[in-house]
């Protein structure tokens, strides 16, 4: 049962990823991204990462994809992309580099030296109850409290930066044709 679920989800995730890369319409790309996000969220669930799976669905599959769609519709860039490639050499180079990257990552996976680290923080499920939300929360608010607090600063900076970048500046923008 787990194997069937795994292969169905793996096919879905890879098909979604290919759809993001090959789709001509940015809206379709965002929807394919949603498919991949959802499949990965179920992968998380299958590996006892309950809280992370829900966060994946709420933050990635909802907030981030909706933000993408919102910007696409706001800018009105949902027409199809130009097909002519100004640098045709780059496309072949990218595919070759991608193949090299895949081989490298697979070699790393195939070697045990990359996977020999031992537990430093604690087991997945400390008290043996079903689910590990409590264990994750305890690690987050004890061992990683400093990093957790810093994420708050990071998010505030990101929000302020986003507002500053996206707002219209007070001065008049030069009209078409009189750009420096």
């Amino acid at each position: 049962m787990e194997a069937v679920l795994f292969f169905v989800l793996a096919a879905g995730a890879l098909a979604g990823a290919l759809g993001v890369v090959l789709g001509r319409n940015p809206v379709h790309c965002a929807l394919f991204l949603l498919v991949t996000m959802a499949a990965v969220a179920v992968f998380f669930l299958m590996q006892d990462a309950d809280l992370v799976a829900i966060i994946q669905l709420v933050v990635y599959a909802s907030a981030i994809v909706v933000l993408f769609l919102f910007v696409i519709t706001l800018l009105g860039v949902d027409e199809h992309e130009r097909l002519d490639e100004p640098h045709p050499f780059q496309r072949y180079a990218a595919i070759v580099l991608g193949a090299v990257l895949l081989v490298q990552v697979l070699v790393v996976i195939g070697n045990d030296w990359a996977t020999g680290a031992r537990s430093t923080v604690g087991p997945l499920d400390e008290d043996g109850r079903s689910g590990n939300v409590e264990t994750l929360a305890r690690a987050l608010f004890t061992d990683y409290i400093w990093a957790f607090e810093v994420t708050a600063v990071l998010l505030v900076i990101a929000v302020v930066g986003g507002v500053v970048l996206a707002r219209r500046s007070g001065r008049r923008l030069p009209a078409e044709g009189e750009r420096p």
Binding site: A49, T115, S119, V121, L124, L136
Partner: peptide, 11 residues
């Protein structure tokens, strides 16, 4: 995190 039984990966 699952393979090594370590909560650090999920954090």
């Amino acid at each position: 995190a699952k393979a090594l039984d370590d909560i650090g990966g999920q954090v």
